[in-house]
Nucleic acid binder design. Sequence first.
RNA 1: GGCCCCAUCGUCUAGAGGCCUAGGACACCGGGUUUUCAACCCGGCGACAGGGGUUCGAGUCCCCUUGGGGCUACCA
Length: 551
Amino acid sequence: MTQKTGIFMIVTRFAPSPTGYLHIGGARTALFNWLLARKRGGKFLLRIEDTDTKRNTPTAAQQVMDDMRWLGIDWDEGPDIGGPNGPYKQSDRRDIYDRYIQQLIDEQKAYYCFDTPEELADMRVAAEKEKRNNIYPRPDMFPDAAVVEKARAEGKPVTVRLAITQTEPIVIQDEVRGTISIDPAELSDFIIQKSDGFPTYHMAVVIDDELMGVTHIIRGQEHLLNTHNHQLLQKALGFRIPIYAHMSVTVSESGGKLSKRERPKMLKKAIKAMGKVDKDAMAKAGGVTPEELETFLKGKTAPDMPAVDAMAAYMGVHLPEINIVDFFRSGYLPETLVNFLALLGWNPGDGREIMTRDELIEAFDLSRINKSNSLFDRQKLTAFNTEYIKLLPPETRLRHFRAYLEEIGSPVAAADDELLGRIIRINEGARTLEQIEQKTRFAFVPDDEIEYDSKAVKKVLLKGDGFAMLRAVGDALATLDELTPEAIETLLRSLAEEKQVGLGKIAQPLRVAICGNTVSPPIFDTVDILGMNTVLKRIENTLTKFQQEKD
RNA sequence: GGCCCCAUCGUCUAGAGGCCUAGGACACCGGGUUUUCAACCCGGCGACAGGGGUUCGAGUCCCCUUGGGGCUACCA
């Protein structure tokens, strides 16, 4: 029963609105659609839904595309590369929407309205007070062209609504949720064209999906009830009905939908928890006025993301990663995110978890998407990242690490490929690229600019005989003529034996002297990487610097 | 409030009526390894929300309760 028609090509899409960075939920939606298209040998489209002129931000579309590329989610048609059914930006498709809206009006399936925002708000309040649904009162007679002309001349807002005349239940088929039917009496005639002339989301999405030949739509559960409206529109316009799959929502640790509001929220909480903070300095760090900061702390409005990030950095608080770039900057790998995201609400059914991109594509299927909401578990994400740092081919790790170092402006970026590769290798077991960077940074700062951790200095050098041990280590190292990790190991081990102490007694003072901290990559590699001159210099510096405190 | 969706360890989940004494992964706890932090190895703790049905038999099907989530915009 294998009937390959050949003409039935799957088409999926991701249709973000350019209001900010690509966030984790959007990335998951994009990934599922991409996975389905790749699995079935179909096409995956990218479309920018910028019909809300007030919310659009100019760089967002570019940023979203950059983030998708970083994740390795590529598209076959899109705003930047075009395609047979373009343009792929809704603001460039106004004339198309106008035609269909006019068609609905001509067929008496839609009608003009002239309500002001205040009037609509009153209706909403009244409905709420009377505990009934807010159903728009459809006029018996639809306004004709003359009336519209007059309203426009008077400066009234002009919108268009779809007349919902169906009385039988509206039934949608959902691939993950089955049959969901709803009584049209629950539905209100909704706006399909706004007073600024732009179509609403509902109108634009239905038209574009039809014209672009989209066959499968995977999206969040928040669109489940919209689907009935979309089906009404599809019927009114004589369109095909695509296959829908509504995935569960990803919720955050604090409950509720995982949203970009999470970061400003956490920042506010941190500021309040700290009590006294220099607000002027913080406002300055974030590039906002003290007044703006004050409004943020009191009210609901939040400054934009770069300002939030800058203030968090200033205060040294770690905000939960929400946007894809946040994860990049925290040292996560794209492979980790793709794998982890795929497993949020889907699984291959055979217990596999760590899976390559190809394995994910191979195993992906709509029937295995589950229905219940899932919580975004950062600890498990980190465990995946640890795994991927170990698993990835050296070239790939190197590429990711270099990109990360350049993004955060780390001094470690000065290392050449060979050194960087070695740094990754000796840090195997690290959970994020950030950890590798932090553990290696000391090697790339000038010898006299090492930051000594006071607790480490006290514990390892000042207390006990750490100081004397360090001197002995310095003397011993100075005699070494062959510099390899093995030679260093042999030397230090025999020194430990001679002194009748464990290797730790030798290694820790040395570590603090050359790194400033008790935490570093394995000591023999660390010495080797720094080179003998630097090591001896730092030992010397350390002895001099803390000599007085010792006495 | 109305409408809709969902419900297995702390978390992500396996489970499509007997294979379940409910399996795996992360987290957690205990132990081991060890030059630090990790990583690694071994072991352990730990769940079918509650109540009714249906059935020879229910985590699996139905109903109710409870709990969670979504929508209810000239946002998408």
